[in-house]
Design a protein around this nucleic acid. Structure first.
Lengths: 338, 338
DNA sequence: GTATTAGATGTAATCGTTTACATTTTATAG
DNA sequence: CTATAAAATGTAAACGATTACATCTAATAC
């Protein structure tokens, strides 16, 4: 590989000029710029980013800590992040943590060794092991959020979404609704439960813990939840799953009993994954604007990165809430029993 | 941020010793190592990877150029790549190209600026724009491959997989089989077509172009293909789609006509995405060992990286073929017509 | 014409490590 | 105990760019 020096020699200018024609072309004259570019082309020269990043002490890359890339929802979120990152001249690294806290630390460590300029955490816990006092690494939390001062969040309106779809079920006369939640710990889960409560409250109904099954967002758990509900003396007339995968799993189980969705039992999901339009029947669900996390997340993160470099003290923590959208397809019908 | 010098001062050793306790701890004595680690901890020191990578002239990261991360099959491939990369101390960057050749070039350019040590290309064309003579960048091609000398490939046994599932259909007495292919240009597509031909040949049947529909691997195109086949005077008794998404799209369309899968029409897919077990009916398909691409891909790539650094001339190009596996579920039945 | 200024280029220090080589310390053999 | 080898540590030169500052050139004003 040829370096800046070789180019400067064959172009007959100083290395500073070569550097400038690549990093701030506007301040070098037309004529010299042409000379340098010609020489660079001849020699097959490309500025060495390793050297550049080292010199300016930033990597122009950020990492997203994603619990499960295989999850279609996260895949969409990542798409949005990537686009937003590229718009700002950052490259996006992905850390697939598999919910494993050790792997997550390993990735977060890239920030401490200056390999990435900031972190976007998609799970609900603080990813760095260092003391709070040393927490100087730009970080934003999206999707599922922990509550830590100074960490900006961009979250989805989970309570609104859950409330809306629950109200839809209630409007369709369902009164015995099975709810398949995610794992207990997650705030996201609590918010969706809160949304359910609010909707039920409007109809004068209390949330019945017996009607709740704690799943884990997989097909398999949706299947299992339906299995349990179906074995009850008084089956629910509708099942609301906290994500689409579980809803599809539930439908599979329901259909195995010869029951029809939605005529015999309604099913609602959450997320609106691509597949939701192709399940049988197509799933009624609430759409999260997965791609929309990108822009605000990068706004927050770039702000922090710039502030950190300028040694400014941080502003008040910020938070952006993304709106939901109800997607009505064919898996919910008016309750037959009433 | 504290640097190596500060640590060396507070530990009372030279910077070389500090460097060594982090990069090759075995060659520094127990006692000094402890001193250094203590000092580092006190100061919150983490070695600056930017500096390190610059010094050793490698980034320990590689990039995978993936056409569509949202595609569940690629998501699995990426998972396997990531694991293999991590095992070798590399971090995996992802470039989501969206089939866009400009974006792809942009990502590939990271290699020319030394930001990544190598490239794993998941599509069937050469990603670098430089002259063949300058092609010194470690590169391996997986999944869908172009044929370029000196670029190792790891591919899936597409002809074997297609032949096997086609033979299954033929064994079940199907003689009029609709085939939904991917876009024409791709080698992968040609291979699967070849597999179909081979199976048909064994039964003395010629591949009939009229029974082929050129799709694009989306649900929507599968749906459209089935729509066309269903409108024929003599409908096929089975449809074989070159991926699961299209198969699921086909099933949706077939069921809309009140036809049952597989009793009235059989459907077979390709890939065995997670969803294939949860479609209605569960899909008979051929499993590609998506995660298995990772290991051989990284073997090839690391070989190249090391050879390039040692200035060795390249070996003969290599190629690894991954075996298929038939996954028999409920979407294929014996042909009713015969 | 000269004085003044803006624009273009050059010089050289610097970023934080690694590592070849030199030196010192420690262990082993006699 | 000394001689020798091995192990541990130190010294200092890289790696390839950026950039503050100095210098030179060209443009403008008078």
């Amino acid at each position: 590989m040829s370096d800046i020096k070789k180019v400067s020699e064959t172009a007959g200018v100083s290395i500073a000029t070569v550097s400038r024609t690549f990093s701030s072309p506007d301040i070098v004259s037309q004529k010299t710029r042409a000379k340098v570019q010609k020489a660079a082309k001849e020699l097959g020269y490309h500025p060495n980013s390793l050297a550049r990043n080292f010199r300016v002490q930033r990597s122009y890359s950020i990492i997203a800590l994603v619990p499960d890339m295989t999850n279609p929802f996260f895949a969409r979120v990542i798409g949005g992040l990537e686009k937003a990152a590229n718009n700002r001249g950052y490259t996006l690294l992905l850390g697939n943590t598999g919910h494993n806290i050790e792997i997550e630390k390993k990735y977060a460590n890239l920030a401490q060794t200056s390999l990435v300029d900031g972190i976007i955490q998609l799970s609900a816990h603080y990813p760095l092991e260092c003391e709070p006092s040393l927490r100087k690494i730009p970080l934003v939390n999206i999707c599922e959020c922990f509550n830590e001062p100074n960490v900006p969040q961009v979250i989805f309106d989970n309570v609104g979404g859950a409330r809306a779809i629950m109200k839809l079920l209630l409007e369709k006369q369902h009164r015995n609704i099975g709810i398949v939640t995610g794992p207990n710990e997650s705030p996201l889960n609590e918010e969706r439960i809160k949304g359910c409560e609010e909707a039920l409250y409007e109809y004068g109904i209390k949330l019945d813990p017996d009607n709740m099954y704690t799943g884990d967002f997989t097909f398999e758990e949706g299947y299992r939840a339906a299995d349990i509900f179906l074995k009850r003396e008084t089956k629910p007339t509708a099942i609301f799953c906290f994500n689409d995968e579980m809803a599809i799993g539930s439908m599979k189980r329901i259909k195995e009993d010869g029951l029809r969705v939605p005529h015999d039992m309604s099913v609602a999901g959450f997320d609106d994954i691509h597949f939701a339009a192709y399940s049988d029947p197509p799933l009624t669900t609430v759409a999260q604007p997965a791609e929309a996390f990108g822009e605000p997340a990068l706004n927050f993160l770039c702000d922090q990165i710039d502030r950190t470099r300028d040694n400014q003290n941080y502003n008040a923590p910020e938070r952006k809430i993304l709106p939901y959208e109800l997607v009505i397809r064919d898996s919910v019908a008016t309750c037959a029993k009433n």
